[in-house]
Amino acid sequence: MAHVGGAPLSLYWAVARRSFRRYSTYRGATFAGAFTNTVFGFIQAYVLLAVFRRRDTIGGLDVVDAVTFTFVTQGLLAIVAAFGPLELADRITSGDVVSDLYRPLDLQSWWLAQDIGRAGFQLMFRGIPPFAVGAVAFHLRLPAGPSVWAGFAVSLSLALAVGFAWRFAMSLSAFWLLEVRGLVQLMGLVFMFFAGFILPLPFFPPALRDVANVLPFAAVVELPVEVFLSKHRALPDLLGVVAHQAAWLAVLVGTGRVVMVRAWRRVVVQGG
């Protein structure tokens, strides 16, 4: 049996499943969220249609790409969750995290398992419905063939992990800051903007594009959506995208771990 941080993998699997089930109790909120994402998708789609009345392509995207982009990102919004959940930060602020630190398991893996359960639920009930409704009203593009679907699955999984690693690292700042909600809110906006949520990154002027390229956020939204739009069909190209995402994942997970060890030492030294 494989072990992570002194606990069997089956434990993390159980955590993920429980997290999935917990989210499934918020039916009303889930429906409301999917509805709101759909409405925003429609509004944004009409704006893009107006833009493409004067242009055939922008940064390699045609009108169908752009509208598809919109509905995929609306679907990703809840999955990637730039603004939270902030349970970990809350537990740190309240001091409850101390009891987590004494458990015979790896804190980061534990929260990752939680997040996988959450993201799985959001994928099914917040991700797919806006896209499906959008596909009824607009001409949307699906991945061209099973290999692109497979590439998208890999890229999306990495995107979720990068998003998680980012939030984990942000949440740990609660060990040093009294209040992290404001900071997460502010960083969430930057995240959203440079990830391509507000507008596809190919629309950005070169200078902003350069900024986006050196930030990890494109790995969370722009890249998986490009894969979805079959922009990286050639295998080397796809591998390049995946490697880019994996590199960011390694950087953020590593940062999270370093910060976690420091925070842990701080708790031990100061007695919580």
Partner: peptide, 23 residues
């Protein structure tokens, strides 16, 4: 601190809206 960060983030949220329109 929280109050000010939230106020700033409200400002930034609106600012990014208009940046998107300019883009």
């Amino acid at each position: 601190t929280s109050f000010i960060t939230f106020m700033v983030s409200q400002f930034v949220a609106g600012f990014l809206d208009i940046v998107a329109i300019v883009i």
